[in-house]
Computed example of a mutant assay.
Amino acid sequence: MQTSSLTALKELALQCARSAGKLSLARMKEPFTVEYKTSASDLVTAVDKEVEKHVVDMILQRYPDHGILGEESTFTGDPGKYETLWVIDPIDGTTNFVHQQINFSVSIAVYHKGEGLIGVVYDPSRDEIFHAVKGEGAYLNDQPLRLERQVHLEEALLCTSVFWNKRAEQIGIDQIVKKLAGKVRGMRLLGSAALELAYVAAGRLDGYVSLSLNAWDFGAGKIIVEEAGGRVTTMRGTPLPFDQKSSVMACNPAFYEELQHYLSMNENM
């Protein structure tokens, strides 16, 4: 894809992220409905749906021939039929949006023929926008991000949602991660996978591990971490899909092999 085309896509992705973030902050101050998806801990709000439709409309107005894969399924076409696919999560961290009103984000990625080209993660509560274009590096607002610090696993600050995953308990990976927690410097959980991946790119976290994320959760963060010099794969060490649910492991490259070996001790992942 030509540089001019990438620049236009990046500018629209940034515009969509900021506009979506502004809308979510405005709606947060008003009464809104909260619904359950699969359980009381799996929430969706009317704001999620409104924000996604807002972003979808912005994209299709500019690129009517593009496909969109979004959490709220606002786009009615078949995402698999499009060469250029936008992968979006209007509010990643809906529970935080409802309860805390911080630690949620807008995640927007652009993939072309399965290759990640552009990633944007916007934290509207802090007005921080993490973004990357393939081959052009990663940025936080206008500051370049580069993971150059050599971090040993025992010095690492990791983030994981594994402890709250029922399948992790069933296959025993939660016990492996609990042992890992005793080996590293500390463990955190923010509740927004896109934001947590962006924090890995920024060096605020050294690694992130999840047993099961949807494509819209990691689509943008993967690109940003890789452009910052980090490693992102499945927990098995295989390439991430761009349009399917997957385990995710993202980290500073200095301890990637050690972390991947540690996690791969469970054959059922």
Rank of each mutant, 00 (worst) to 15 (best):
G135P: 11
E196P: 08
A201V: 00
A109H: 08
L157W: 11
L158E: 01
F104K: 02
G221I: 09
S192H: 06
L205H: 08
K113L: 14
G119P: 06
D92F: 11
E196M: 14
P144A: 11
A109Y: 04
A156V: 04
E196A: 15
L213W: 02
L117Q: 07
S125L: 05
V133I: 12
L157T: 13
R167C: 01
A215Q: 04
K178D: 13
V162Q: 06
V209K: 05
I173S: 00
V120F: 09
L195F: 06
P124K: 07
R167K: 14
L145Q: 04
V200N: 03
N165D: 15
V177T: 14
S212R: 10
H152I: 00
K222C: 04
S125G: 00
G221A: 08
G182K: 07
W164T: 13
A138K: 01
V209R: 05
R149C: 05
S192Q: 06
L211C: 02
F163K: 13
F97N: 00
S105E: 05
S161I: 04
A215D: 11
R126E: 12
L180H: 07
L153S: 07
Y199S: 03
L197R: 01
T94P: 09
A215R: 01
T94R: 07
A198W: 03
I171D: 11
G191L: 13
N214S: 13
Q101F: 05
L213F: 05
G203L: 09
D217T: 08
S212T: 02
L140G: 03
I102R: 12
I173H: 00
S210Y: 03
K183T: 14
R167A: 09
R146E: 12
R149Q: 14
V106H: 04
S210C: 11
